[in-house]
Design a protein around this nucleic acid. Structure first.
Lengths: 107, 107
DNA sequence: TTGATGTGCAACTGTGGGGTTGCACATCAA
DNA sequence: TTGATGTGCAACCCCACAGTTGCACATCAA
């Protein structure tokens, strides 16, 4: 494990917040939306959404691009897949370790 | 997504903390250890470790059982696998949505 | 029984981060 | 040009939570 690669670290932190998961959910449903648009569907202010999108962007879970006076965001699955892979590796590592302990205990 | 099943929620929150990831790492390496033992390998107090183990236990990432005057903990891979599966499902969902948006944009 | 070791509970502190409001600046349509 | 709409920055509040210390209680070996 060793706290994993830096990216994984940020993804876990980003996903830990319920509001951020809601934002991702809405963003995935809308496909492409501004912070203002997302905030309309949530019980928080636009500025709160902006901050969260910043965190999500730094974690690579979201991608933003300007479009005139708007800034539109999209969801980005890649880092999610990476993190899932990392988790499975850790789980495997734990399982192997547990098996080893068990085998030692039996001898 | 919809914030996922309650268990996933707790797993994500638990994994978001770097100290907790370190604890899991040491615990997996030791195979079976007490809070006191784990604290010896980390730059935090025993009580801090105890609290973290509480969070990890509630998340199902760790399992504790008494052994005389000691309380020994073990790592538990199951919830980790569940969470990884959930993540892959979300990633798939996002990917499908992105493809749909793209196809609509092209028509 | 006594000392040593370990757990468990409680109170306290400090800070990071989620949330808000207010305002200046940019961009568009009329 | 002007009003409307939207973004971006900054200051501020508040609370959950990571971490600490202190102490009472339980369990073991001698």
């Amino acid at each position: 494990m060793t706290a994993g690669p830096g990216a994984t670290d940020e993804v876990l932190t980003a996903l830990a917040d319920p509001t951020r998961r809601l934002i991702l959910d809405r963003l995935a449903a809308l496909g492409d939306a501004t912070a203002t648009r997302v905030a309309e569907e949530l019980p928080v202010s636009r500025q709160a959404v902006v901050k969260h999108l910043g965190v999500l962007d730094r974690a690579g879970l979201v991608e933003g691009h300007r479009d005139g006076r708007e800034r539109r965001y999209q969801v980005r699955p890649d880092r999610l897949v990476d993190t899932a892979r990392w988790m499975n590796q850790v789980a495997d590592q734990w399982t192997r370790r547990l098996d080893l302990i068990k085998r030692i205990a039996e001898s």
